[in-house]
């Protein structure tokens, strides 16, 4: 490696963009070339000055509030995605695995790309993204299932089971009221590390097949259990969502089906 080549690579090397081989060659050259060593040293100094002293401008709190308020006003008018859902569908290995859940009589079927599924999945993705974007994640913030479940009383005419799954690595964050396809639905929010898991729950309209699919980087799982349809969405890995679904079922299976209070 000559001096000219070396100098080109000094920046990328500092930025961690060089592969191991090139890095080693560069190191060898710099060790025995004073001129290049000085160039490297100066560049390093500039970079540390920038990272140490250049201000990182943080959004003022008041400005954040302003944005949140503006986004909230947008929610009712948020358009449905214009792109056809189908183009985003890709088969996922998880599809079959998620369905192999013991203890529940799930109506299982492979994903038939029905048009109603497209619309619904698209709306679910939209609702999920909206909930994250506008900070509209939680209306009731609690990890206590006994707080979250009653909160829905009177707001919707069905009662989803609410369980904290912290033991399985999925702490309950709370819930909120959301709308899908013009109907009020319960949204239960769980977290797994940095991923938010939204569970939309509504009374099953017809026998809907359990499905797992992916769209726009999200994984969706849908099933019907005791008259309620659950649609679970997250940007967590498909395997994680599969694990979550299993935890949800394991928990439900050990409890007596709750009587609807309303």
């Amino acid at each position: 490696m000559n001096c000219m080549q070396t100098r080109e690579l000094i920046g990328p090397q500092l930025d961690g963009e060089l592969d191991l081989m090139a890095s080693l060659e560069l190191k060898r050259h710099v060790e025995c070339c004073l001129a290049c060593a000085q160039v490297q040293e100066r560049l390093q100094a500039v970079r540390s000055a920038v990272t140490a002293s250049a201000p990182y401008y943080q959004a003022p709190e008041q400005f954040g509030d302003q944005i949140r308020a503006a986004l909230r006003r947008e929610i009712p008018h948020a358009p449905a995605p214009r792109r056809p859902w189908r183009t985003f569908l890709r088969p996922l290995a998880v599809a079959a695995a998620v369905l192999l859940v013991a203890g529940l009589a799930l109506d299982m079927a492979l994903h038939s790309y029905r048009s109603s599924s497209h619309t619904l999945a698209r709306e679910v993705v939209a609702a999920h993204v909206r909930s994250l974007m506008a900070d509209h994640l939680l209306d009731v913030r609690s990890s206590n299932q006994h707080t979250v479940k009653p909160w829905f009383n009177g707001k919707i005419d069905f009662a989803p089971e609410v369980r904290d799954l912290a033991d399985a690595g999925f702490p309950l964050e709370g819930g909120r009221l959301d709308y899908l396809d013009g109907h009020a639905v319960a949204a239960l929010v769980y977290r797994h590390n940095l991923h938010v898991i939204n569970c939309f729950v509504w009374p099953a309209r017809d026998a809907e097949p359990a499905v797992a699919s992916g769209a726009q980087g999200y994984t969706l799982v849908r099933f019907t259990d005791r008259g309620l349809t659950w649609c679970i969405i997250s940007d967590a890995a498909p395997a994680t969502l599969e694990e979550f679904t299993r935890a949800l079922h394991a928990n439900a299976a050990t409890t007596v089906p709750a009587k609807t209070p309303n």
Binding site: A59, F63, Q66, I67, A70, L71, E74, A78, P79, A80, P81, R82, R83, F88, A126, V129, M133, A134, Q216, G217, Y218, D235
Partner: peptide, 20 residues
């Protein structure tokens, strides 16, 4: 702040262009 507020709204309205 002016430009960012507008950009956030634009991002919000066009989140369907987000491909994961």
């Amino acid at each position: 702040q002016d430009v960012l507020q507008e950009a956030c709204l634009r991002a919000f309205r066009s989140f369907d262009t987000f491909r994961g």
